[in-house]
Design a protein around this nucleic acid. Structure first.
Lengths: 319, 319
DNA sequence: CCCATTCTCTGACTAAAGTCAGAGAATGGC
DNA sequence: GCCATTCTCTGACTTTAGTCAGAGAATGGG
């Protein structure tokens, strides 16, 4: 895809303005009393405490450094670090009452910072600024989601599949029992019979999609799910694009799937992505609609048809 | 004005996402080879060089620190610092050829950074992200503009008045000669006969507006102008609101102004701000329209009428 | 029970980023 | 020509934010 110089320019102006404005306020509100390293750590420990290893990976810091910061917070009586009962190598940091109070102060300052960004604006301008910020936030978040092929037995995959089942159970009139559905065997979504993708945001699994590759038959999408908090990021469409490409790479020229009538947003997604409704091609007891799409190999860009752009971010994409 | 907690929340989410995403990329692209302090300085010196005092104030750094950074850049042959001929206490930093090359490298990296923010998105998403960024940029910039009352002889005021005349000269069919216009005496815009406001962005004057307060007569807006690069920030409306409040504080209950037919955006602004067209109340040779507004003291918020929000940011507001 | 591995911690560093107190040159107003 | 002021620079500090190498405890698999 080409990079438009005018777009690059606007992004740079944005970076400049935001880092300058937010940076100055950040120093003013949060940079007092306490070094930001400690403040970030205090914040990241959270109300319920957190393992040291998780702190390290969340903040991307050296283990020695985190240890030292924790010692310093401990010396101030804000934090208590204790071994985890289940695995005494791992230690868990917890806030003391004083630590909680300090964290509340930081929280308040963060609110002040946000307020001071809005303060000089009138009502209409505020509304527009907040809306634009939400859009930037959403799209930057969407850009950090990664799609990786994993084994369906991987903990992240299992987590997604469990959430998928639970959610369908709630949404379908009939409930949902994975054992009654077709494809009870996760082996079908593992090479060479298929593959399984997990979407991750900051390392957390937030969605999945499986592809069945039966020999000499069309490829088939199964078990597509996106976590509620990761919806409206265009992830459904991204899964479709990715699976389409992979199916094509495995020599398939038709991609198909079945779905339940309760999943209306998903139905919209499939239609807008170029799937055609066809007659039932299997006996899936939970399916009401069957779709098929001819695929032609890797597409240049999933958003070639601009009229489908809006529905690209529709809610609740599953298969 | 109340601060909506949902808005505060969205702003905080935005701050978090942006500083995280942009911060990581910033370190990756710009944080190599060279400490950011030096890089910022190199950037701020610019193609044409800049006085040390201006560098210090732009970057908000200690004078000793800036001096040391300059010595370090000088030792690397990237910068040359020489006394200003007019005032030999002040010294000017200039890039050498090598410095210019180094700055070009930083420039390229900054482009890469911007590109990498867009890279994971499809065409439609990119367009929306860039549009939202432009909106955030515009409104945050608008929020940093300050309005100060100054003497009409202040250099910033004179700069604005000169620009005002030049611009009218170009826009009016008839040209514009300040001496032929009413109010040739700037004393009328100085307390106690009136006042003069200058809008500043990062310390640079970007607009002005005068208020005449003749004893026992309506207050009158004169010499309102906004620099081309600061338009569409709602500054015109902000001037009107501010002058209205100040006129009310001086006991006036009517505010009036005259304007030229060439200034169509300004005409729209006055109408949407509640001004009514009236018969000529003076002999201003350059005026085609005369407006008047009854004022009632400080208003709660300039954007109480949402339908006028769009035109709040219309182009070219002058009186 | 052994051994490789995982996890956290300590000690010994380093670089960056900045602060503070003055020194010394130049200027402008009187 | 004097003197207060402005501007930049130097030297002597400090704090923050790390990095790196290993030590020592705990765990899990065989």
């Amino acid at each position: 895809m080409t990079t438009d110089p005018a777009q690059i320019d606007q992004v740079r102006r944005f970076n400049r303005t935001v880092t300058e404005r937010v940076g100055v306020l950040h120093d003013h509100y949060l940079g007092r009393d306490r070094p930001i390293g400690e403040a970030r750590l205090l914040w990241e420990i959270g109300e319920d405490g957190r393992d040291v290893r998780r702190l390290r990976e969340r903040l991307g810091l050296d283990s020695g450094y985190v240890s030292r910061l924790l010692r310093s917070l401990e010396a101030e009586g804000l934090v208590k670090v204790e071994p985890q009962p289940r695995d005494r190598r791992v230690r868990t940091a917890r806030l003391t009452a004083a630590g909680r109070a300090e964290r509340a102060v930081l929280d308040g300052r963060s609110d002040e910072l946000a307020g001071s960004l809005l303060a000089p604006l009138n009502t209409a301008q505020r509304a527009r600024l907040v809306a634009a910020m939400a859009e930037v936030d959403r799209l930057l978040t969407a850009a950090t989601v990664t799609l990786d092929a994993v084994d369906p037995d991987h903990p992240d995959a299992r987590h997604c599949l469990r959430s998928y089942s639970t959610e369908l159970q709630e949404r379908f009139d009939t409930g949902f029992d994975a054992a009654r559905s077709l494809l009870p065997d996760p082996g079908e979504l593992r090479p060479p019979h298929g593959l399984f993708l997990v979407a991750r945001l900051h390392g957390e699994p937030v969605g999945c999609a499986g592809l069945k590759l039966p020999p000499g038959a069309p490829a088939e999408i199964k078990r597509m799910w996106v976590a509620p908090h990761a919806r409206r990021l265009g992830l459904g469409r991204r899964f479709l694009t990715e699976l389409e490409e992979r199916a094509a790479r495995h020599g398939r020229d038709v991609l198909r799937l079945d779905t339940n009538k309760a999943l209306d947003a998903a139905l919209g997604l499939y239609r807008s992505a170029g799937f055609q409704e066809v007659a039932a091609f299997n006996d899936e007891p939970y399916a009401h609609h069957w779709f098929e799409k001819r695929i032609t190999g890797p597409l240049p860009d999933s958003a070639e048809s601009p009229e489908s752009a809006e529905s690209a971010e529709s809610e609740v994409p599953w298969a």
